[in-house]
Design a protein around this nucleic acid. Structure first.
Lengths: 202, 202, 202, 202
DNA sequence: TATGAATGAGTATTCATTCAT
DNA sequence: CATGAATGAATACTCATTCAT
């Protein structure tokens, strides 16, 4: 086999893997974990039943890949939405808004990832998947601390911040009746709560 | 049928339902959702296979009932652990500790409830299940505000508080490698974060 | 127990039995034999699950009762529709029409009775159920033979006549696409076929 | 995949489907519809449990396929038993006898086909299944009419003829006590009835 | 008679996984 | 690498029947 063919094949394969992940995200979101069959996934991914097993050993083993993709997505959105030159308060607002929008868009996936985790012993490496996101927020906070915009920072701060916003967004979109005005209220309530928590200065 | 007989019957039925829920909590906790068979549940609940279906239409449909029970449990634990006479700071510590302990104890179930919820349309009334818990915290905060222990309170505060602590506890026990020292760190990190957020005084 | 009470009870019971039969006819017709559960029948009949077994030992054992009712119905319709004073040719027309209308009205029941028979060893006494109907037709034919309207009569003639008409009506309503004009054609085709078969004279 | 391979695969699949149908006919005949389990069918067909569902979605859905096969069988038997050179009267006798023998042989299946059909919406195309049989009889009648053996023919005649004989045979074997002498009587009664109906000439 | 909750044996059906092509 | 028909163990679920009230 020539190198070019080899490369082409590799490319094709990567696509298949991605198709599977995308299909799984769609279907898990739509029908839930339990009710999504491998048969559904391969159908949606437009591949053969057996091909699935060339990429993943089981249905749940797709979960870490999904988690990775989700974190990448939100990370990218944050990088894109948060203005590094803006004031810290402004940045927090942007983060909150971005996470709310994201949570709304991918509604159930978040909880589904929990589900996947709960159903398997597979992954405790969850935190390592979240790592880049935490690092990004951590850097943001450290910079703000250096500039005197906030006081108290430690290695948990970033995680608390993310956790707080996500949990509020989930309440807004997953469980409540979710009228948009209420979601807005929740967003607005978080900001001062967070700024206080971080002892932000004007 | 006499009234007494009628009452007795009703009682028996309620018991059966509760037996099922308790059995499901036990088994889901122990073996996970997937590996728990209806056969296991009815055996543990000491009822016939068919009887299960008189109370629940499927395995997943037990989830909302479990969620309710879980909230009742944590509510009870909080009432039991939080000293109404203690200082606000002390109370927050007690709340955090209680939630961490609870999350550790019911590790798996917690995430399974998410799973169950996420896998079904069963409940958007999740918030109504959480209601009593929120109300309890809300009352606590209002009292503290009246006494001048904290400043900023609104109707979201209780939810943010619970959400923050739960999300941190979940990170500690569901995703991380979970050595107990790290969990301790997380608990300690939350306290000042929270107290600041609420603008607690001294 | 007084006589009056006894009578009243008896009346009530007869009603229940009839409710069951009527419910079974409805449901068998609507959903088929296999898919109709005893639970469905008792629900439709507005009686308790256990009560069914006071009247019938099994689902299929309702079949003979249904058959009986159906034969009574068609018998009554024939008595009502056939003019004893009319010419024989006219009478045949009336019989054919009545059976077609009846088959249309009770569409699938006919075939369902077959089904019931096929699924059980219960009843070979089918013929005895049909007996009054056959006798009625037989008498009609004998009278016509006496009057010289037809020639050949034997003890099978009535059965052949009924069987022929029913089979044609079933073709019309059970299996074909069943436009009414075609059904009309079938009816018209039978008359001369039958009259010839019986060697009817003008 | 080469053409030959493709063909082979197709052949294998068709065989499996046919094995299922044959097994179902055998078992339904032997044990009845209710008592025949899918497990029995797959065992007899020598395939795996799951394979059944690749070809049929349920037990009842085999019925139309069985009906088709049954019509093919009776058609084949008629072609085989009726002497094209014999007199029309002789041919009618052969037809009657063949149908009686066939009905006796497949006693149960006959009614089961009704049952299957009646229990489902599967086929209104029953007539199209019967089509080849009707055509064959129709051709026979037309030839007889051309030769002057009978008078009245129209497009319903074949259906009436088949319906009449079948209904009589069913009476003989499905419902009556079925002693063979009585069955013989019924056969003999049909012949002149039919010949008259068709205005057969000596 | 009438009830209807409880039963649990019995079975249809599912679906992850394999493997010959 | 890719396929998808075939597999069959595993299980959810059904439903006729019972029986204490």
């Amino acid at each position: 086999m020539t190198d070019i063919q080899s490369v082409k094949k590799k490319v094709i394969s990567i696509n298949k893997r991605e198709y599977i992940i995308e299909a799984a995200i769609d279907l898990f979101t739509e029908k839930g974990l339990e009710k999504t069959k491998i048969a559904d996934i391969v159908k949606q991914a437009n591949i053969a039943q057996g091909t699935f097993y060339l990429y993943f050993p089981s249905k749940l083993s797709v979960m870490p890949a999904i988690a990775e993709v989700m974190v990448e997505k939100i990370h990218a959105e944050l990088i894109n939405s948060v203005n590094q030159e803006a004031s810290f308060t402004e940045q927090i607002k942007q983060i909150v808004q971005t996470i709310f929008i994201f949570t709304k868009k991918y509604e159930r996936i978040q909880a589904l990832v929990y589900a996947g985790i709960a159903s398997t012993e597979h992954l405790r490496n969850w935190e390592s998947i979240y790592e880049p996101l935490y690092n990004w927020v951590d850097a943001l906070l450290r910079k703000a601390a250096q500039q005197g915009s906030i006081e108290a920072i430690n290695e948990e701060s970033a995680k608390l911040l993310i956790g707080l916003i996500e949990s509020s967004a989930e309440q807004a979109y997953l469980y409540d009746e979710t009228d948009e005005k209420m979601a807005q209220n929740k967003q607005e309530a978080i900001i001062p709560f967070l700024l206080n928590a971080l002892e932000a200065n004007g």
